[in-house]
Design a protein around this nucleic acid. Structure first.
Lengths: 147, 147
DNA sequence: AAAAATTAGTTTGCATGCAAAATAATAACG
DNA sequence: CGTTATTATTTTGCATGCAAACTAATTTTT
C-alpha cells in the first residue's frame, strides 16, 4: 500500500536526515573546543590529508558546495588556519595552504572521531563498516544520477 | 594508526553528510513540482499521518528544529497548506491543521518516495532495509546521548 | 587572432539547523 | 495567594546548502 510508504518512520531519507544532523550535533561540542564548525573541520581533514590543493579539488574531496566553500575559506583565513594563494600558471585557480597554526591543530583534533565513536554503545565496528559500505552505494547511485 | 582515522574516506560522519545532502538534492526537483522544500515535505508527511497535532508533537515527529519550525509553518501557512490554531485549553499551545489544499497535495506527493527509490540502481530492498536498521541504531545512541 | 565556449571562483538570495535569549502562559511551591 | 519554575513558541544571529547570476581567465572555434 502506497500510503504506508509515506510514513516518516518508513523513509530512508528521514533516517539519513536525522542521523546526519545528530552526528553533526555530536561533533559540535568537541569541535567548538578547537574553534571549528563541522564543515570547517571537513576542510581541515581534507588539507591534513593533502595540503596545497586547488579550491576545485577541495570541493571535490569534501563535497561541500562551491558557494559555501568561498565563505568557509574566508572565515578560516581570518582565523589564520590557512592561506589562499593565487596560482601563477592559471590565474583563475587558487591554491589552499595550511598555516603552521592550521597544521598544529591536527594534534588536538585527531581524537575527535574516536570520541564520537565512543558514543555508539549499541553499534559495533562491523556494523559501522556495513553502514559505510551501504552509504557508499547510495552516494554512488545518486552521484551518477545528479548529472 | 590514528591518522588513518582522520582521512575523510574513513569517516562515517562524512558519508552521512554526503548521503543526506544528495538524497535531499534528489528530492528537490520532484518536490519543486508541488512547490515544497524538503523540510516542508517532512511536515506534510507528519500531518498526513496524523492531522491536528501540536507544534511540539510535530517537532517530536519530524526532528526539525523548533526555531526552524516556526519559519517553516509560517511559510506553509502563506501557501495555504495548513492553519495554525490556538488551543483554548492551554493558550501556550498551537494546533496545526491541514487545509483542504494541504490534504489534496498528498495525492500528487505519494509517488515521490518511490521515484527516488528508482534511482538506487545498485541498492536492493534488503540493503535499504539494513541501512534503515543501522541508522536507527545510530540515531538511538545519539538521541540518548544528546541530553 | 577575435568571438564563443568553458572553467574557476565569487556573490546573492532563499531556506534551513542550531544555540541562546526572549515571550507568554501554566503549573508548582512555600 | 503571590513568587518561582516550567513549558510552548518565537525571535535573533550565525553558519551552511543550494540554485542562479556574475566575473575573470583560459581554451576552443572559426
Amino acid at each position: 500500500m502506497r500510503h504506508e510508504q509515506l510514513k516518516l518512520k518508513n523513509q530512508l531519507c528521514h533516517r539519513l536526515y536525522m542521523a546526519s544532523n545528530s552526528i553533526a550535533r555530536a561533533y559540535r561540542e568537541p569541535l567548538a573546543k578547537v574553534n571549528l564548525t563541522y564543515p570547517q573541520y571537513v576542510v581541515m581533514m581534507a588539507l591534513w590529508e593533502q595540503d596545497k590543493i586547488t579550491i576545485a579539488e577541495l570541493i571535490e574531496k569534501t563535497a561541500i558546495d562551491g558557494g559555501a566553500m568561498t565563505q568557509i575559506l574566508k572565515k578560516m583565513t581570518e582565523k589564520c588556519l590557512l592561506s589562499i594563494i593565487k596560482d601563477e600558471q592559471d590565474k583563475r585557480k587558487r591554491v589552499i595552504k595550511l598555516t603552521q597554526e592550521g597544521q598544529k591543530i591536527k594534534i588536538k583534533a585527531v581524537d575527535i572521531p574516536s570520541q564520537i565513536r565512543c558514543k555508539f554503545n549499541n553499534v559495533n565496528s562491523l556494523q559501522i563498516e556495513q553502514l559505510v559500505q551501504l552509504l557508499d552505494l547510495i552516494n554512488h547511485d545518486l552521484k551518477t544520477d545528479n548529472r
